[in-house]
């Protein structure tokens, strides 16, 4: 039944969007995580979405979504001169993550909107299925 697969499709979207929200939360939480060298500094992470074509192989009309990978931002880390900081290196610098809080907030709003309308789609599908079950009454 096609409506059941619509349910699954919306489900994959919810899971992908919640991963995106999770990643955004990690980025915001670690926006000020200080480190003393370039290698151990937190870098902003971003999920990469891809269409999950193999999930519904017998149903070409259904295409779910999955998180293909989570990539780290290649943007330059922030360096700050703070010789008194306990984590500063021998030159007196501390390293801060390359998280852009404004970008992350925009990403968060976009993810929550997508989550919302996928829930709405799921609800509508549920109503349609229930109406179909009541057919003829």
């Amino acid at each position: 039944m096609s409506l059941l697969s619509a349910f699954d499709v919306s489900g994959t979207a919810l899971s992908a969007q919640s991963v995106r929200l999770n990643v955004t939360a990690s980025n915001l939480a670690n926006a000020e995580t200080v480190s003393s060298n370039r290698e151990t500094t937190y870098r902003a992470r971003h999920p990469v979405f891809a269409t999950a074509l193999d999930m519904f192989r017998d149903k070409p009309e259904s295409a779910g979504v999955r998180v293909k990978a989570i990539v780290e931002s290649p943007a330059e880390l922030r360096m700050r001169y703070e010789p008194e900081h306990p984590l500063s290196n021998e030159d007196g610098y501390i390293f801060l993550p390359n998280v852009n809080p404004i970008e992350e907030m925009a990403n968060m709003i976009s993810a929550s909107r997508s989550y919302e309308y996928n829930v709405e789609a799921m609800n509508t599908t549920k109503q349609l299925m229930l109406a179909t079950l009541r057919l003829g009454q």
């Binding site: 269409t51 779910g64 996928n118």
Partner: peptide, 22 residues
């Protein structure tokens, strides 16, 4: 029913790069 599946796929993939709405 099939169309509803297609449209919910479009909604699910609203943030997928290179996805083409059907």
């Amino acid at each position: 029913a099939k169309r509803s599946s297609v449209l919910s796929s479009n909604l699910a993939n609203s943030d997928t790069p290179d996805y083409k709405a059907r």
